[in-house]
């Protein structure tokens, strides 16, 4: 497993936990424990994604940080084995 794909796997796990908390909050919008977890997890995911994009390439169409190259079309797509 490459460094990029190991990092991406960590982001997938943390992002999933954040999404799961958000789904739960839709039905429990005043739950203090869930809100505290959401805030903490959101910051963690944000930092990880920023670090990934600055070193490995964009995660969204707005995350291309290379001023000389549109990496959006040159890095592997999520459905390719190389990206996983």
């Amino acid at each position: 497993m490459t460094r990029e794909s190991a990092f991406l796997k960590d982001i997938q796990a943390e992002d999933f936990a954040l999404y799961e908390a958000a789904l739960y909050l839709n039905g429990h919008p005043t739950c203090p424990d869930a809100l505290a977890y959401y805030c903490q997890q959101r910051n963690k995911v944000k930092e990880m994604k920023e670090q990934y994009e600055s070193t490995c390439g964009p995660l969204t169409i707005y995350g291309n940080h290379d001023q000389n190259c549109w990496q959006w079309v040159s890095t592997p797509w999520p459905w390719e084995k190389e990206a996983n």
Binding site: W72, S74, W77
Partner: peptide
């Protein structure tokens, strides 16, 4: 269509 579109530029256009 995008999965088999072969070239990054074309996959990007189809995706976006």
């Amino acid at each position: 269509q995008r999965y088999t579109a072969k070239y990054g530029e074309i996959i990007g256009i189809l995706n976006d």
